[in-house]
Amino acid sequence: MDLNLKNKFAVITGGSKGIGFAVAKGLAAEGVNVALIARGENRLKESASMIREEYNVKALEVSADLTKKEDIEKAFAKIKDFSDRIDILINNAGTGTNENIIDADDEKWNYFWNLHVMAVVRLSRLVVPVMKENGGGVILNTSSICAKQPLDYEPIYNTTKAALTMLSKGMANEFIEDNIRVNSINPGLIQTEDWVNTAKDLTKDTDKSYQDYLDNIAEENTPIKRFATPEELADFYVYMCSDKASYCVGSSYYVDGGWLKTTI
């Protein structure tokens, strides 16, 4: 299937590893040039270099802390110097939390609000006018199954991802008049480095391997009985970036192996 994405330009936050990097590779395989935004400079350079060498596309690495407005503005300026067009924006930067509501301080709430919600607002303010100049575009926001089906140990993550899902709906309604399609992707169990590192920590000095721990989580929670790879999820993002998904506007797509316990 020809997705007609060749020579388009995508900006991907959290693009140096995990879901973001898998999406970057998936788009690059279709001939899309990419800008990867992340914090860790060494990993970022390695990821961009790999994409350039393996897929023969342009790849820009941009180091930024997306919780900071000034970093977002500097990142955008660097991207604009690199490309006069932006066709795709993947707002993917984020991470899980671990707290309870009573003890979590304002600073922690504000940090994740800025990371999961305001980073999307701030970057979209900058990118949308560029998309309008070029006749439209696609914005995909990485939310989570936790936006609808929360996990008890991360109330801040649950809340900010629920807000992001609602923000995506508002963006979709506002931007579609300029031919900019916005949707949120709500993943379930995706075996990223963060999951693996957590599992290794929790199984250290036990007789259980980290993979056993992950397998048990999947067995208990998902009808499909396994985690997805980032690449499996990325295939859906790539499709949603294409004209094949031209009627997909303002929806939340749960890619979760059946973990979500309701359809309503």
Rank of each mutant, 00 (worst) to 15 (best):
D205G: 00
F9K: 06
E220L: 14
S246Y: 04
L123C: 06
D103S: 12
T222F: 09
M240K: 09
A162P: 01
N134E: 10
V57R: 08
K161W: 00
G136I: 01
I156R: 04
Q149R: 05
I88R: 05
L233A: 10
K225R: 14
R122V: 01
T165K: 08
K68D: 05
N173S: 14
N91L: 02
N91C: 10
A64W: 00
K78M: 02
R52H: 04
V249L: 10
A29Y: 04
N114I: 06
Y213P: 01
M166Q: 11
V138W: 05
Y153S: 15
T165G: 06
D256T: 03
D215R: 15
L123T: 12
A245G: 02
D65C: 02
Y210K: 04
V62D: 02
I145L: 15
K58L: 15
S63I: 01
I156F: 11
K69W: 07
M240S: 12
N158M: 02
L126R: 02
V120Q: 08
R52G: 05
E231A: 14
P150Y: 03
K80V: 01
K17I: 07
E154C: 13
D152F: 15
R181H: 06
F236Q: 12
A162E: 00
M118T: 03
L27I: 05
I264H: 11
V249E: 13
F112P: 02
A172Y: 10
T97P: 01
A35F: 05
S242L: 04
I180N: 00
G188D: 10
K261D: 01
A162W: 03
G94I: 09
E54S: 13
S184T: 03
W259M: 13
Q191S: 04
N56S: 15
Y55A: 04
G20H: 11
A64Q: 00
T198L: 14
N173C: 12
A28H: 07
E99N: 15
S143E: 03
G257H: 01
W195I: 11
M171G: 11
G250F: 02
V120K: 08
F227V: 09
T97W: 08
T206P: 08
A104Q: 05
T159C: 11
S124N: 07
D205H: 09
E232L: 09
Q149N: 10
D194M: 15
N92I: 05
E232A: 09
C241H: 10
I176P: 04
K108P: 03
E99Q: 15
S16T: 10
A93G: 07
G15D: 00
E133R: 15
G257R: 07
T165W: 00
D235H: 04
A77L: 03
K204Q: 15
L140F: 10
S143G: 02
R39E: 11
D207E: 13
G26R: 09
G250W: 10
T97I: 10
A38G: 02
N33F: 08
E220M: 14
K161V: 03
N110D: 14
T198Y: 13
T203I: 10
K80I: 00
A199V: 06
N42H: 14
L189M: 12
A172S: 14
I12F: 07
V11E: 05
D215V: 12
D212S: 11
L36F: 02
A77K: 02
N183A: 13
W259C: 00
R125H: 03
M166E: 04
L3G: 06
M1Y: 09
Y247R: 04
A64S: 08
R85H: 08
W195N: 14
A29R: 13
